[in-house]
Amino acid sequence: MSKITVNDNVVEWNDGLTITELLKIMKYTFPMLIVKVNGELIRKDQYGTYLVPENSDVKVVHLMSGG
């Protein structure tokens, strides 16, 4: 099985996996996120088109309001 890590959890990887699909798999339904793949920040407008490479290290941070 091909894998990636998402916030240090091992997750199954499929060819053509987008950030949008990955967020669904992870049940990350929060509207405001920061996503980094192998150190590169993926902008919100790229979530549907950016393809997550095999063996990637993905970090997702939920942004909370308040400042």
């Binding site: 509207p31 405001m32 996120l33 920061i34 920040l41 919100k44 942004l63 309001s65 308040g66």
Partner: peptide
């Protein structure tokens, strides 16, 4: 220092900063 109130604003600021000054 990102010290915005709204999560939406935090998101675009972090995205913009990271793309301009990685």
């Amino acid at each position: 220092i990102e010290a915005f109130d709204k999560a939406e604003s935090k998101q675009w600021l972090i995205e913009e900063w990271s793309s301009k000054f990685p």
